[in-house]
Nucleic acid binder design. Sequence first.
DNA 1: GAGCACTGC
Length: 940
Amino acid sequence: MAMEVEKLDENEWQTKLRQLNESGHKELVVKRNFGHDGQNTLAEMARQHGLHFHAYNKGKSLVFSKVPLPDYRADLDERHGSAQKEINMSTETERRVENLLAKSIGTSGIIGSSSTSSPTSSQGSKQSLPNMVTTDGESRARLGVPKEKFSLELRDMQISKKSTPSARAMQSFREKLPAYKVKEEFLKAVADNQVLVVSGETGCGKTTQLPQFILEEEVSHLRGADCNIICTQPRRISAISVAARIASERGENLGETVGYQIRLEAKRSAQTRLLFCTTGVLLRRLVQEPDLGGVSHLLVDEIHERGMNEDFLIIILRDLLPRRPDLRLILMSATINADLFSKYFENAPTIHIPGLTFPVAEMFLEDVLEKTHYKIVSETDNFVGGSRRRRQLSSKSDPLTEMFEDVDINNQFKSYSISTRQSLEAWSGAQLDLGLVEATIEYICRNEGDGAILVFLTGWDEISKLLEKIKANTLLGNSSRFLVLPLHGSMPTVNQREIFDRPPSNMRKIVLATNIAESSITIDDVVYVIDCGKAKETSYDALNKLACLLPSWISKASAHQRRGRAGRVQPGVCYRLYPKLVHEAMLQYQLPEILRTPLQELCLNIKSLQLGAVATFLAKALQPPDHLAVQNAIELLKTIGALDEIEELTPLGHHLCMLPLDPNIGKMLLMGSIFQCLDPALTIASALAHRDPFVLPINRKEEADSAKRSFAGDSCSDHIALLKAFDTWKDAKRSGRARDFCWQNFLSPMTLQMMDDMRGQFLDLLSDIGFVDKAKGIKAYNHYGHDMEMISAILCAGLYPNVILCKKRGKRTAFYSKDVGKVDIHPASVNAGVHLFPLPYLVYSEKVKTTSIYIRDSTNISEYALLLFGGTLKPSKTGEDITMLGGYLHFSAPKSVIQLIQRLRGELDRLLQRKIEEPRLDVYSEGKGVVTAAVELLHS
DNA sequence: GAGCACTGC
């Protein structure tokens, strides 16, 4: 049935594909694992042939299959062994569940509830959210101050604040910024055009000055009371810091005329005329106010970053502009792709502002090699006749690396030394040479002037290895002369002051960082940047429904941004550890996030904003996502019951729209509130939605590992570990020991605090949509909050269809998922290294392909959790089998047991349906019998 | 037997 080949070169694909297409073969088995790029190449070609292939790993081979996924069953035995699970229910359990169920059917009154439309739920979804941006253009008027008077007040205040000596000093500083030179041109363009694109390099003052120009202009023309300027920022930190900066430039306190609003935090008042908020906050506001009533000017900053929120917002705004002719839209971008946005908005005029940073010299690999005399040695050079072309076959390579391998080094680099040319011959873009990084750092320290060094690396591993190399280095290892600091989003050092502070004068600071230092964290005193040219980047493989996190070449735009990090205080130097030819071949910009991410949450938001059919709407994007990615998202939303067959929101979908969460996590939260597990559901949802509170220290990772495991106990669950860690932190906090507790248990206090705040927000939202009555307190919804089986069932209800089969293979266990076949447990999971699981399945919240396909966090669950809280059950004709997940999960049992399970499940579903349609229904008392029967079964 | 880019509601 399968065609087999060893490895294919690019031209052979075409032929093989055609053969596969025309033949009766079902699969193409490629024996070499040639990596993700190869898969995508084939996928692309297949699409051109009008075929969709499904790829999965099978041992060391990669299999491409024509078989559509629902027809999985036939292949199951061959690939996974038998996936059939026998349900062994004791007659005692059967009898008890039977009794509980019989009782409940008599009393609960839940039979015959068949309404499908829901007036109550749609009412619920129109209720207002707390922490929402509210229109307050008229708020002062409402407070009794007439508009005209308020405008006068604002103007007089602006005049008086400008006359103080400190304000004059501030003004002269502002006048030196490049943005000041375009002030009149800018204000005229804003007055004359509905849309304007402003491009400018960092340091030109566009973010701090342009919104301020508008504010000053409006206030001085006595339009202050009517103006309502919003400026969006992609990150929380920048929303706060820019607002604070502008308030101080105006000589005001933050929260007066200038304020900010980010999730769970705001500083603003009725006077506020200029508000900085994150893009996410504005998108939430659009749910309530599709026309942005009351907003006079909207500035969208950093659109060149092409974040998902910003791309999404821009589609909505383009449609909104005709309905709001008085609204002014200003898009702010880096220079590099301003034209793209101008074209998108019917050739809107653009204004360019030159930058004001110090010049940064740049060097490429060839120059770095000349200076450092470092010799790159290829691993395969030791073999006789190891030509460069041959080496490429042995390593996973990418187009840029391959391109350079075809370059005639001696010809192209005539003017360079022989040693450099040899090194260039040996260089491979596939692997970073840490020795070269070390040599470059050493060169700077020996030969260049003072100033901090910032090294861009791809991840934890490289940072850790380089740190060790530096420690062992005879010069750099001297800790009284060199301060070497790792900087990684998951390391506990991120907020330590020494990263930002200037070191003592005889000491040089060397920061080893990931992408985090590209835009999120700014270190002012950097003079030297060393750039490895790569970053770990997410991508989304729509064919296999798989998120990937793989190192790849950065774009020219990112390289430019990294270089700029060296010129903030004085002229700097950027050492690029890749050849100039590679730099020239880099993509202009990074692929926008909307093309690199699963889209379920975005699709849900599109539905909640009533923007029409998802695919039609997304086709209007600057760069529309792949059709298959959209289909996957819609299908998932249907699977979890958020969308119906005609892609309309179900009552459940309406509720999920109100929760700022991934739909799966939102569902888990709702299920937790319904089934008396509110407290754990709040905690787990906030951790999954925000970030993992466990940090990864560089030297003590074994200790960190065991701390996490001790929280999990014998639960076989990362989610329980999160829960226990959070609860223990709360206790420690109450007794004033939070700081020590976090340090000893490798937890991030900031993340835990954020989780705590988010729990509060979720509780408010659940209360708004009627699922809980806040006045009664969490305890009233937490009867099973300490019941592990019930918590696992809730996790299953929320995380489905993210299910993994655990299959015993001798002393070990192997893991399989429906979409990609064999997967591994991530080594940071508490389930890594567990050989025998008490229960046959795992549910997970994240599956990511890195060096392998890993399940990052998982919880071991029983067949009953799946049968009662998983996907739709499909009984077989014989009545002795039930399947789920398109036949992937298969259960068998005696007829009576199957019938019992179906009846119980039916009652549970009806109860749930009624609750979703009438959120205020008291499930705990009305459906007590059904719930107790379910709990009984989960415990058996 | 071995690993964790970064945001945001």
